[in-house]
Design a protein around this nucleic acid. Structure first.
Lengths: 210, 210
DNA sequence: TAGATTGTTAATCGATTAACAATC
DNA sequence: TAGATTGTTAATCGATTAACAATC
């Protein structure tokens, strides 16, 4: 789709631009220069212009960027104008937290099904969505055009479940299990390793306490 | 504490080394070469050696690295041999998920208090820890030597709460609110922006669907 | 038009990889 | 000792910043 591959460093900054532009828009601000955005976001103006120009010229010399337009363009680049059908595997506290967070739906990420191996919670509902047994997962994925699976299960099961899901057509994983998933090249994995994040904080606390 | 500042790129990889070494240790493996580790972790052997040598020579020529020793040394570098007292602000689903995740305690991150502005859940207990009103937070932080605050509240309140916590001695934030915290230089912030992560996945799905 | 600010090229900086001498 | 593998220097690669011509 892209002419040249965009680096993950750039991709990683897009949601942050998107967030700040949304805030400016909500404040009724219509235009912004790379320098103004630089002051607010604490990144260099040069980087902002360089990043945006990976995707085309959204600005205008002498004027800057139109906030609403840029916001919507970045949204499109991120694919937020498209809908995704998700399932969540693992209905523990974290799984429930994610299902209950409405903002994902607002951005086009729709939870279609929840799966858990614990019989006690099967049949209960989380925000109206029934918790189903794992045995129903494969069929559900095929029948409901699921493209993203959210894994909020312990690491022991994650690799096998991921494999199973790849085989029935899931294209992307949002992985909260503390394990690295190795999947085919055409499958995307975005991992959130919470304990890694906490360890980083721990290191930085130590190294700055002198 | 360090002679030269270690880059965040390196720090970010340490927890992953730690994880893989822990797994090797649990398998009863005693030694590992950078090349073997490279094969398992899918990073270059050169990078592993380079990263580790930021902190000193943990290996031995002709032998490699002792798994148990390296594991424990990386743990120390990450500060996992020290205890941290945490509070969590926001007892919603995400807050509950984190409090209930025992592995953090195993690594020395002890939840001491939970705070929430919702009167209905004040007084209830999560894993034995009482949910307290926000008004008690400042005093609690001072009296219980709290050094890390976990913010699982909506972004509207986060900036103000963080300011308040800095003023009573909190040194680090694990921030799940969808906002960037600007704190003094001696205070550490580690943010987990879940929706940013999901947007990255969305981009990568789009860009690889051709 | 003159001033402002982008888009883009060139320069710099930092991180990764390669290579190899040191050494166990 | 000979073989293996680290620690570390040098080379490469990529990302960030600076600079400025193009242009609105």
């Amino acid at each position: 789709m892209e002419d040249r591959e965009i680096s993950q460093a750039v991709i990683g900054r897009l949601p942050r631009y998107f967030r700040y532009l949304g805030e400016l828009r909500d404040q009724g601000i219509e235009r912004v220069s790379s320098q103004e955005l630089s002051d607010i976001m604490r990144v260099t103006a040069s980087q902002i212009r360089q990043d945006l120009n990976n995707f085309g010229g959204f600005g205008q010399q002498g004027y800057g960027y139109n906030v609403g337009y840029l916001y919507s363009e970045i949204g499109k680049i991120l694919g937020l104008n498209k809908e995704h059908n998700l399932i969540i595997v693992g209905a523990g506290h974290l799984g429930q937290a994610l299902v209950n967070y409405m903002n994902f739906e607002r951005r086009g990420f729709i939870f279609r099904g929840i799966f858990d191996s614990n019989e006690k919670i099967q049949g209960t509902r989380i925000r109206g969505i029934e918790v189903r047994p794992m045995q129903e997962m494969e069929r559900f994925v095929r029948e409901n055009d699921i493209d993203i699976a959210v894994l909020t299960i312990p690491k022991t099961g994650a690799v096998q479940v991921a494999e199973q899901l790849v085989s029935c057509g899931v294209k992307g994983f949002w992985n909260f299990a503390h394990v690295d998933l190795h999947v085919p090249d055409n499958i995307q994995v975005e991992s959130v390793h919470l304990s890694d994040s906490l360890m980083k904080l721990s290191y930085n606390l130590l190294s700055h306490s002198e």
